[in-house]
Design a protein around this nucleic acid. Structure first.
Length: 200
DNA sequence: AAGGCGATTGCCT
DNA sequence: GGCAATCGCCTTT
């Protein structure tokens, strides 16, 4: 479980967004580990009206303007958190939203965070997917909040490490979800057929 | 100082 | 499929 090197993130945001598919998102949670395979991402670029960085640096989006390889977590709709991977050099203002992961380790902890009122019974297939099939869902499952915004993905306690190979021809692109500007850009990437992808 | 709204989710019809 | 929840941030007075 070694973190990907800084150089991975210091490249074109569209390339990083695509190559993050199949990588492992890791949260060191006290003594335990929560991990998942990234299966869906979205890129947010410079001069992109859909990006939080579009109107320049603010207190909230400050990590987006730092060096690549850091986490940017924002709070939205009064109740949700979403986690991004900052890309490129200082001042660029670009990032990749992690929209979905396939759970691999720490599923009990994810369940506790997502469905705190559940008893100990087994999850249905639908519940298993609902653990992490959306940006705010996976942030909740991994326990990531604005307290984690700005942390270094090369040092932790959240890191991204090598994952699995993606079968050839299974990476798909589409327009981004939930935005009102920049809607024509196909900057969403996902693994076709994966059950944790938020929307097909 | 005030108002509008969001890179979403879950519940209700 | 439609819509409320819920609040911090940003824009506009």
């Amino acid at each position: 479980m070694r973190p990907l090197p800084r150089s991975f993130y210091m490249r074109s945001t569209l390339l990083v967004a695509r190559e993050l598919l199949g990588k492992t998102l890791v949260r060191i949670d006290g003594r335990r580990r929560i991990t998942g395979i990234i299966v869906e991402t979205e890129a947010y670029l410079q001069n992109d009206p859909a990006s939080h960085s579009f109107r320049g640096p603010t207190k909230r989006n400050e990590p987006m303007f730092g060096p690549g390889g850091h986490l940017y977590v924002y709070f939205t709709y009064g109740m949700h958190y979403c986690a991004n991977v900052v890309t490129g050099p200082i001042g660029r203002g670009e990032a990749v939203l992690i929209r979905a992961v396939e759970p691999t380790e720490g599923i009990g902890l994810m369940k506790k965070r997502r469905f705190p009122d559940n008893d100990a019974s087994e999850m249905s297939e639908q519940q298993r997917r609902a653990l992490t099939n959306g940006p705010a869902k996976l942030a909740q499952a991994f326990g990531m909040t604005t307290e984690h915004s700005g942390i270094d993905l090369v040092n932790g306690p959240v890191i991204i490490s090598k994952g699995i190979a993606i079968a050839k021809g299974t990476v798909t692109t589409s327009t981004r979800i939930g935005i009102s500007q920049g809607t024509e850009k196909c900057w969403r990437f996902y693994i076709k057929g994966n059950r944790w992808v938020s929307k097909t």
